[in-house]
């Protein structure tokens, strides 16, 4: 039964991927990609990785889908140029064969991975009580491999700043992205008003629950960001200008808190990013809270894009 389910899911994922590549128009391709993300989230559940499923659903399918769709709306034409740049059949065939061989080699490698699989599960579980959290993923992300997570949070700041720096000089200081008119009527605008409060609660819940169950700052932050984006495109919320100190501190609060707590480890524990067991959980929650805020802010800004100042 489960094998059948896996087979269906697996074939579906591959099928959707093929279709996404093959379809000529951009819009259905993005729809296909969102479907792909949804199916992948299901696969992750099947693999027992609910944390990842949440992340994939929120970021992989949701947020990525939205920015892709925004891009599709704004990119038009170029058909002739695209046709001219299309590689010839011989190149495509070569690419197909080569990619196939690479995939095959990969499959062989995966199938010949050693049995029993090496695993850190036991070690992760053994040290989890020292951290006071029950979700092993959170333990890995916040403690064992805390540096990865810190750098990853910094990558988000990089991305925001990099995106901003693509702006034309004269737009600097304006608000990020286009400015949307207020949607005054219709069911859409009703939903745009209704959804954010629910979403914010859900987002905070997902972030909060992360310490002990699947969830956490990235997933929760993404949901919060989604609600912010909804409010923004519905014209209900004006993004602060890029020069806004508050906005910027919101973006850097998470990594800064992370670093701050990490540096305190020099004083109160044995080194950077080391938590004293007595207050490990509160510290982790503190970082998670700040990170949720920062992730949400960063994602909104990344979706909005560089300052455009249209109708600002």
């Amino acid at each position: 039964m489960t094998l059948l389910l896996d087979l269906i899911l697996g074939l579906a994922v591959v099928g959707v991927a093929v279709w996404t590549l093959a379809v000529r128009e951009n819009f259905p391709a993005v729809i296909g990609f969102v479907a792909y993300g949804l199916l992948l989230a299901l696969v992750w559940v099947r693999l027992g990785a609910v944390d990842v499923a949440l992340t994939e659903a929120a970021l992989g399918a949701g947020a990525t889908g939205v920015i892709l769709l925004f891009a599709v709306v704004r990119l038009r034409g170029g058909r002739a140029e695209i046709d001219a740049a299309t590689p010839g059949p011989r190149q495509r065939l070569a690419a197909g064969i080569l990619c196939g061989v690479v995939g095959l080699a990969l499959a062989v490698a995966v199938l010949s991975l050693p049995d029993p699989a090496p695993s850190q599960a036991a070690a992760v579980a053994r040290h989890l009580p020292e951290l006071g959290v029950a979700n092993p993923i959170t333990g890995v992300l916040m403690a064992y491999r805390g540096l990865d997570t810190l750098l990853e949070a910094v990558v988000l700041v990089f991305a925001v700043l990099a995106i901003w720096s693509m702006a034309p000089d004269r737009r600097w200081g304006a608000v990020p992205g286009p400015v949307f008119p207020v949607q005054s009527n219709g069911p859409l605008s009703l939903l745009a008003r209704l959804l954010p409060p629910i979403g914010i609660v859900v987002g905070i819940y997902i972030a909060w629950v992360g310490a002990d169950a699947p969830g956490g700052k990235f997933q929760g932050g993404t949901i919060l960001a989604a609600m912010g984006i909804l409010a923004w495109v519905a014209g209900l919320w004006r993004l602060p200008p890029v020069a806004s100190r508050g906005l910027r501190w919101a973006v850097v609060a998470g990594p800064l808190a992370f670093i701050g707590v990490g540096l305190l480890g020099f004083v109160f524990a044995d080194g950077f990013l080391s938590y004293p067991p007595a207050i490990a959980k509160p510290l982790i929650l503190l970082i998670e809270a700040a990170m949720t805020l920062s992730v949400a802010a960063a994602l909104v800004l990344m979706v909005a894009g560089p300052p455009e100042g249209r109708r600002a």
Partner: peptide, 8 residues
Amino acid sequence: LLIGFAQG
């Protein structure tokens, strides 16, 4: 970098 970004 973080502080510089925040403070301008």
